[in-house]
């Protein structure tokens, strides 16, 4: 990693304690304890259905949880979707990139990026547009600003989605399998943009199946198995010397193919 290692004793920007989530009978997340400090890049890996996406979706309240506590940037979320004002504040400060991009198809690329800063932050059209153009240039799609999302490739759409989230000047970015819906030849351009962001010191929580990327960009890797954090540590430890049997078996399945 080229960016400076975040201080492990810094005040966490995200902290989850004894977080539990159920979908009816299904116990999706079990006693999750997790903190993320500013500037840290945390990559969450695990098998399909292990609860890793659900975990980061809890962080900005897209999923409710039933027990435990979740604090993001000083705002506390309570179980069962209470405290909506804290939720609104969290969502303003936390950006998210989705597997399916979720761009707004009825708005131009530029309007996709300017909408939230104008509506939520109250920026003027000029300010929002200037910021949007700068961000679109940064992710390499400045010449597509007036197109509609459907006119863009998947990789371009995902980079617009990244610019859209960054336009809110978030303190934390969540990535929910950002490359899983992309054609193989477009994965690289999205990972490059994320790498750049990590280098600049953005705090990131990333759910991904890209193990090479995880090893390269992560300060810490968390392995989730059946809704529980089975193992966490620096990437070298997780990938080269996994301790937990479930981590070993998961990695042997995903790395040898």
């Amino acid at each position: 990693m080229t960016h400076e290692k975040p201080a492990p004793d810094a005040t966490p920007i995200v902290s989850l304690s004894k977080l539990n989530k159920h979908y009816g009978e299904l116990h999706v997340l079990k006693d999750i304890d997790l903190t993320v400090v500013p500037g840290e890049v945390v990559v969450i890996i695990g098998a399909s259905g292990s609860g890793k996406s659900t975990l980061i979706r809890c962080v900005n309240g897209l999923e409710e949880f039933q027990q435990g506590e979740l604090e993001v940037d000083g705002n506390t979320l309570l179980p069962n979707g209470k405290a909506t004002r804290a939720l609104q504040k969290i969502r303003t400060e936390v950006g998210m990139v989705f597997q399916q991009f979720n761009l707004f198809p009825h708005l131009s690329v530029l309007d996709n990026v300017t909408l939230a800063p104008m509506r939520v932050r109250g920026w003027s059209q000029d300010d929002a547009t200037a910021t949007a153009r700068r961000l679109l240039a940064r992710v390499g799609i400045s010449d597509q600003a007036d197109k509609y999302p459907s006119q863009l490739s998947g990789g371009q759409q995902q980079r617009v989605a990244l610019a859209r989230a960054l336009a809110m000047e978030p303190r934390l970015m969540l990535f929910d399998e950002p490359t899983s819906a992309l054609d193989p030849e477009m994965i690289g351009e999205v990972l490059d943009a994320m790498r750049e962001l990590a280098r600049e010191g953005m705090t990131m929580m990333i759910v991904t199946h890209e193990m090479g990327f995880a090893r390269e960009v992560a300060d810490r890797v968390i392995f989730i198995d059946k809704g529980r954090i089975a193992e966490e540590g620096p990437p070298e430890q997780i990938f080269d010397a996994p301790q937990h049997p479930s981590t070993q078996s998961f990695l042997s399945r995903v790395l040898k193919h």
């Binding site: 609104q88 969502r91 998210m96 989705f98 979720n102 707004f104 509506r119 939520v120």
Partner: peptide, 30 residues
């Protein structure tokens, strides 16, 4: 309208009313 549209709106800090008015409704109306 796909659930992801609402989630994208909310995750950007838009209120539920703003998400509906600016994102869901224009697409639904078409």
């Amino acid at each position: 309208i796909e659930r992801g549209q609402r989630e994208a709106g909310l995750s950007l800090g838009l209120s539920r009313v703003q998400t509906f008015r600016d994102i869901i409704w224009p697409q639904a109306f078409r």
